[in-house]
């Protein structure tokens, strides 16, 4: 059994993104499991503010020394804020994936997009199933 954090207040995707919904604003990041798999993250290719997110489409890519991982939008919408801190400190995703390591905030187009995402328990099980 793995020992990855999966906070209860988040929704999760099969591609290992998390989504926090606060009113009409969504926040997206990479899960603890994903950062652990990637190991030392050295670069985040951030999107621009104002870019459109399309559910299921990639909008950002994250690199470690020997791997690259695309980040897929868990819901559609428009990016309102990008975590510029990741530009200089990409390792924040390793050290604090659910806090300082968030990637973008966005205006959610359709909250129903989140309906098919996993809750924390289902996601924890999903992580363990891949070990």
């Amino acid at each position: 059994m793995g020992n990855w954090k999966t906070p209860d207040d988040l929704k999760y995707t099969k591609n290992d993104e998390w989504l926090r919904i606060e009113g009409s604003v969504g926040t997206i990041g990479l899960t603890d499991y994903a950062q652990d798999q990637l190991n030392d993250i050295v670069y985040v290719d951030l999107p621009d503010e104002g870019d459109t997110l399309k559910k299921g489409a990639t909008f950002c890519s994250i690199e470690s020394v020997k791997a690259a991982s695309d980040v897929y939008a868990p819901a559609s919408g428009k990016i309102t804020e990008v975590n510029q801190a990741l530009e200089d400190e990409p390792e924040l995703i390793n050290s604090d994936p659910y806090g300082k390591g968030w990637i973008v905030k966005f205006e959610i187009g359709n909250t129903a997009d989140a309906n098919d995402l996993m809750d924390a328990a289902a996601y924890a099980e999903y992580c363990n199933s891949r070990e």
Binding site: E63, K66, A67, A68, D70
Partner: peptide, 13 residues
């Protein structure tokens, strides 16, 4: 360095 740009890691991307 910057190896993840390359074909053997990123393949079709």
């Amino acid at each position: 360095t910057l190896r993840p740009r390359e074909q053997d890691i990123r393949r079709e991307k």
